[in-house]
Design a protein around this nucleic acid. Structure first.
Length: 813
RNA sequence: GCCCGGGUGGUGGAACGGUAGACACGCAAGACUUAAAAUCUUGUGAGAGCAAUCUCGUGUGGGUUCGAUUCCCACCUCGGGCACCA
């Protein structure tokens, strides 16, 4: 009898599957299609993470099950390879980003192949390949053509010492990650994409999608649609007015200040001479903080009085205008009305700066804290005694009539900043001409290739490194032929990952981003798994771009992903995140080498609920290895000692059928941990329960070979190499993955007898074996005549008996 | 701060309105061994009892229900996201 030795079998079957082309997707097959997708990895220098394995192993199991169920499956893989980490690595080491990428991809590829995942490698894509990013640029041109790409002045993080633009991630506590200098804001002209134009549809269309509820909710809150009122506060002695957005027009009579964001266009004009120095100092301080930091500082909100006043349109009262950095410039027009009595933030602000707290909605005690609920209006002139909801409507209509306000819709979602001042990204296909303005590169001139240069270091001006390559930058204007300059900013990483799953359907096409019929055949994606961390960025951005492509007739459906699931991260054994600096990283290569890919994959499915963060456990991994050893020995033993013509016991058939149902259902619901545990139970039932003291199979539950084969098939999506090997040991010449997924017989699923639980006052006091369909009266009679029940009910009055068919009886005394 | 999730034995977790702790890890005892490792068998939430059995137990406090780990409210606490990391 052979010992289980994964190192001997895994490579062999990986080569065999690849040679036979088992996992090739077939365009236009008559079989029903199933498109199974994982988020393609960023090939970093650190190599594959065990977290990748969790997601890939899960969807690989799904893909394999689908094939056995008779589907034509597309399960592709590629590389999301543009981006900051590679560029930073290149700057540090002098290795060109394209070389670093090629090296990392080769490494990832080898690692992935050692896991035996059933990717269709013939569809492999790479976002840094000019044949790929030609189409990323093409999408940008289409957005530009439809007016959805525009330029705006937007501040970036800038390190005055390194003289480069910084990503938010590179800003640690307001300082540059590299040198520690305080980061400043630098305003640059940047490309923006108008995702806000799709806000309503992005909310509306979630309805019919199979996404986790929390993902839908998070997207809805991120888009942040709210109905409210825009109210004009005229500035005293001026024609200008401040537009304020509020969802609480009912509190208008309680306004005791208006606060502007430091960047508000009117702010500068309102500063009175005597306050000038103070206010300007405040504004320049605020400029140094990121939006995130500013909002974080809410507990100690700060502000400064400009010296100017505006007029409350409700009662023409003079209201002081302040500047405060807790007001976000990009939301609600960058101005808020302060109603201390009915908003917590405003209450704190008023207490700090001695503003009046005027109660206008009754129901709380505003001398203690803000009252933010709806209530009845007081101190509000003709609107007194109205309820808040009603008052919001009526006050808004009243303002509309006076032409000093209107009903509006407000979104938290902001347009998407699409420019990066970096080398390692897709060039934006625009040429700037002093006469013609921003002119798109013509489609026939795509791709605008990223020039291969030795110098991709920062320029020292905050501009893209491309800006110093004069032979690339200086071109003729496509419109007028005059001297012009290329756009030197590149696109963010998201640009390539927005549409990659479309390219998989036709990766070599040079006439279109993909063939129309192929897109129509394969899309939408049937099952897309990825991390929760992508919920509001990648997932939302890519839905938007897909909708845009649908509108211009490129994408075949309004939504890209029918179903979305998310996996939790794999933490280190110590419960912290895996990180080089903690020295707690588990390298999947080491695990594959020592225990085999199947053990790693099985363990990651078993470790805990798929959508939760779980700490790695090497002992848990070893337990899975032992399980595989036992399964291996069991199959080998049965093959030798099981007599022919034996029948699986009735009990065995029932257990097997129930497990087939459970495994099939649990895979669909991502309950991979209980799939594995029920397969362990199944094997325990047939093997371990019949062992003697020496561990010999003397009295095991007998099993027919055809039922044993079903068990191996159930295991195969999770441990493909081991399953294939065992399958061949049973004498098969064809692959296990050409088999059909087992079906259960419903007649074995329903129990004939059940254990009826007898409770007294909700506590279990007895259990009786009864027929599953026992009539209520009979069950009650039986229950109250039980010895244990009599003991508990003696001398007490039975008030009520609750009967739950097939489950229990509860006697209330 | 805002949005979204979690908190169940020594550990990862199962059950998700109806027997709390499946499965696995760890630990303990035993078998095999000269011995150890490996393997196998048995036990393993806490407390009381020789035992049958009983009491208590799902972050904390309250509520709904015949019955709550599960539903509702408040609180404590841990994690994810917050727009230039991917």
């Amino acid at each position: 009898m052979d010992k289980y030795n994964p190192q001997e079998i895994e490579k062999k079957w990986q080569n065999y599957w690849e040679k036979e082309g088992f996992y090739r997707a077939e365009d236009f097959s008559k079989k029903p299609k199933s498109y199974v997708l994982i988020e393609f990895p960023y090939p970093s220098g650190a190599g594959l993470h065990v977290g990748h394995v969790r997601s890939y192993a899960a969807l690989d199991a799904v893909a394999r099950k689908r094939r056995m169920e008779g589907f034509n499956v597309l399960f592709p893989i590629g590389w999301d390879a543009f981006g900051l980490p590679t560029e930073n690595y290149a700057i540090k080491t002098g290795v060109h980003p394209s070389l670093a990428t090629a090296k990392n991809v080769a490494n990832y590829k080898e690692q992935l192949k050692s896991l035996g995942l059933s990717f269709d490698w013939s569809k492999e894509i790479n976002t840094t390949d000019p044949r790929y990013y030609k189409w990323t640029q093409w999408i940008f041109l289409k957005l530009f053509e439809k007016g959805l790409a525009y330029q705006a002045e937007i501040p970036i993080n800038f390190c005055p010492s390194c003289k480069i633009g910084l990503a938010n991630e590179e800003v640690v506590a307001g300082s540059c990650e590299r040198c520690g200098t305080a980061v400043e804001k630098k305003v640059l002209k940047q490309w923006m994409i108008k995702i806000t134009a799709y806000a309503d549809r992005l909310i509306e269309d979630l309805k019919d999608l199979n996404y986790p509820e929390k993902v839908k909710l998070q997207q809805i809150n991120w888009i942040g649609k709210s109905y409210g009122t825009e109210i004009d506060f005229k500035i005293e002695d001026s024609k200008e007015k401040i537009k304020v957005f509020t969802t609480r027009a009912d509190t208008l009579f309680g306004v005791t200040a208006v606060v502007l964001a430091p960047e508000h266009p009117l702010a500068k004009n309102l500063i009175k001479k005597e306050n000038k120095e103070k206010v300007e100092k405040y504004v320049s301080e605020a400029r140094k903080k990121s939006d995130f930091e500013r909002e974080q500082l809410e507990k100690e909100k700060t502000g400064v009085f400009t010296g100017s006043y505006c007029l409350n349109p409700a009662n023409n009262e003079k209201v002081p205008v302040w500047i405060g950095d807790y007001v976000v410039a990009t939301y609600g027009g960058g101005a808020v009305m302060v109603v201390p009595a009915h908003d917590y933030r405003d209450y704190d602000f008023a207490e700090k700066y001695g503003l009046e707290i005027r109660e206008v909605v009754s129901g709380g005690d505003v001398s203690k804290d803000a009252f933010v609920d709806y209530g009845t209006l007081i101190n509000s002139g003709e609107f007194n005694n109205l309820y808040s909801q009603d008052a919001i409507e009526k006050i808004t209509r009243w303002l509309e009539k006076k032409d000093s306000g209107k009903k509006t819709v407000q979104y938290k979602l902001r347009d998407w900043v699409f420019s990066r001042q970096h080398y390692w990204g897709e060039p934006i296909p625009i040429i700037h001409c002093s006469k013609c303005g921003a002119v798109p590169v013509s489609e026939k001139d795509l791709p605008v290739e990223l020039p291969y240069v030795e110098k991709y270091q920062p320029t020292g001006t905050g501009e893209s490194p491309l800006s110093v390559i004069s032979e690339w930058v200086n071109v003729k204007c496509p419109k007028c032929g005059g001297p012009a300059k290329r756009e030197t900013d590149t696109m963010p990483n998201w640009a390539g990952s927005n549409w990659y799953y479309m390219r998989y359907t036709d990766p070599d096409n040079d006439k279109a981003l993909a063939d129309k019929n192929k897109l129509k055949y394969w899309l939408p994606v049937d099952w897309y798994n990825g991390g929760f961390e992508h919920t509001t960025l990648h997932l939302l951005y890519s839905r938007f771009i897909y909708k845009f492509l649908f509108d211009i007739g490129v994408a075949p459906t309004p939504e890209p992903y029918k179903r979305r699931t998310s996996h939790g991260i794999v933490l280190a054994e110590d419960g912290r995140k895996m990180s080089k600096s903690f020295g707690n990283v588990i390298n999947p290569d080491d695990i594959v080498k020592e225990f085999g890919a199947d053990t790693l994959r099985l363990y990651e499915m078993f470790m805990g609920p798929f959508d939760q963060a779980i700490a790695w456990s090497t002992n848990g991994l070893k337990g899975c290895f032992r399980f595989l050893e036992r399964a291996w020995d069991y199959v080998e033993t049965i093959k030798e000692i099981q007599p022919k013509n034996i029948k699986t016991t009735k009990e065995g058939v029932v257990v097997l059928n129930k497990t087939i149902k459970k495994v099939s259902d649990d895979i669909e619901n991502c309950n991979f941990n209980t799939v594995v545990s029920s397969l362990m139970e199944l094997l325990n039932f047939f093997s371990r329960e019949g062992k003697d003291q020496l561990g010999k199979y003397t009295n095991y539950n007998q099993i027919e070979i055809k039922d044993l084969e079903k068990i191996i098939i159930l295991l195969s999506p999770f441990i493909p190499h081991t399953a294939e090997e065992l399958w061949r040991k049973l004498g098969h010449s064809k692959s296990i993955f050409e088999e059909k997924w087992p079906e259960y017989d419903p007649k074995f699923i329903k129990d004939e007898t059940i254990t009826l639980i007898v409770q007294i006052n909700g506590k279990v006091r007895d259990k009786i074996e009864v027929a599953a369909d026992i009539p209520e009266e009979e069950a009650k009679t039986l229950a109250i005549s039980q010895k244990n029940v009599i003991k508990w009910t003696e001398g007490k009055e039975i008030k009520k008996i609750i009967f739950v068919p097939g489950k229990l009886i509860n006697i209330v005394i």
